[in-house]
Amino acid sequence: MSQVIVGFPTTLTYYLHYPMWKVFFSELGCKVETSPMTNKKILDEGVKETVTDACVPIKLYHGHAVALKDKVDYLFIPRMVNVDSDKNITFCPKFLGLPDMIKASIPNLPKIISPSLDRKSGHYYLYKACREIGRQLEKPASLIFRAYRRAVSIQKKFEKIMVQNKLNPVEGIDYLFNSGSCSERPDADLNIAVLGYPYQIYDPYISANLMSWLENHKVRTWTMEMVDYSQLQKYSGKLKKKLFWHFSNKVVWACYHYLDQPHIDGIIHVTAFSCGPDAMVDKLVELECKQRNFPFLSLMIDEQTGEGGVTTRLEAFTDMIRYRREQQG
C-alpha cells in the first residue's frame, strides 16, 4: 500500500501547530503535504470559493485547501475550540466553523480529518484529538500514543526555541526541520514590535513582505511568539474583560508587554480587511498607545494591498521614529 498523504494548508494554524502535526502524522507513517506558500493563484481560488465579506485569511485558507485537494488522500482541518486554561477563551468563529465552511463551499474534496481541539473536554484533550485521528487512519493504539508523545515534545521544543532564541514561527519551523540553527540577524538601529495574527504577518504574499522590508531597513522585529505565554498572561487582568479569542488576547497582551520593554521603539499592528475581532483589538491597541504617547502604526491588509502602499507607510513610520529620537538627543 502506498503511503497515505495528509494535506496541511500553509496558513492559519500552520504557524501555531505545524511542528506538532507534522511529527504526529509522520510517526503514524503518513506523508504530510503542505500547500505552496500563498501566491496569486491560491488567493484567486480562495476569493472564488468564499462569501465576499469574509476576511482575507479565510479566503486564503479556502485557496490553500483547493491547492491541496487533488493531491492528497486526506485534508487536515483541525477545529480550534479552546486551548487556553481559561475556558471562555475560544477562537474566532471562522476557526470554529472552518471545517463546516470548507465542506459546504468546496466541491470534490478528499476525506477530511477535523478533530476538535477543545481543552474543555478534559485534561487530555490533545491526546483525545490524536486518538480520534489515529483511529480514523486505522492505526494501532500503541503507535498513536507514541506519535502523540513525540508530537507534544516537539511542540514544546518549538515554543521554547522561539522564546529563547527570539525566533518567529517561520524561523522556528526552519530551525526544527531544516537548519538546526539560527541565521545571523542583520544590523538594526530600531526595535519594533509587530503585532497581529501569525497567519497574516508571516505570510509574505499577503503582508506585502512586511517583515523582510523591516529587516532590510535596519529594523529588528519583535513578535508575540517570542514572549513566553505565561509572561503574556500576566497582562490578562489589564482589561475589565478578556477577549474571547485566543490570538486576539495574545496580540493585546503582547502590546502591553512590549510597551513595558524599554528597548522597543514602536508598535505596528497588522490587521486584515474586514476582520471582525480586529476591529476591537486595533482600537484597544491604538487607545493604549495613544494614552502613553507611543509610536503606533495600524496597517490594514486586503487582497489588493500592493507592496507600494505598505512600504510608503513603513518608511514614514520608521522615519518618524528615527526623527523623534534625534530630536530627543
Binding site: 471562555n88 475560544t90 468563529p93 470554529l96 482589561l239 475589565k240 474583560k241 477577549l243 474571547f244 479569542w245 471582525g276 475581532p277 476591529a279 476591537m280 482600537k283 484597544l284 487607545l287 495613544k290
Partner: peptide, 22 residues
C-alpha cells in the same frame, strides 16, 4: 447588556466605555 460571547457583543461594553471616555 453584556454577554458571555463568544462574539464581539460580549466585549462591546469595555470598548464603548473606552471610546466614549476618550
Amino acid at each position: 447588556s453584556g454577554g458571555i460571547g463568544p462574539c464581539r457583543a460580549g466585549f462591546y461594553g469595555v470598548l464603548h466605555e473606552k471610546i466614549l471616555k476618550d
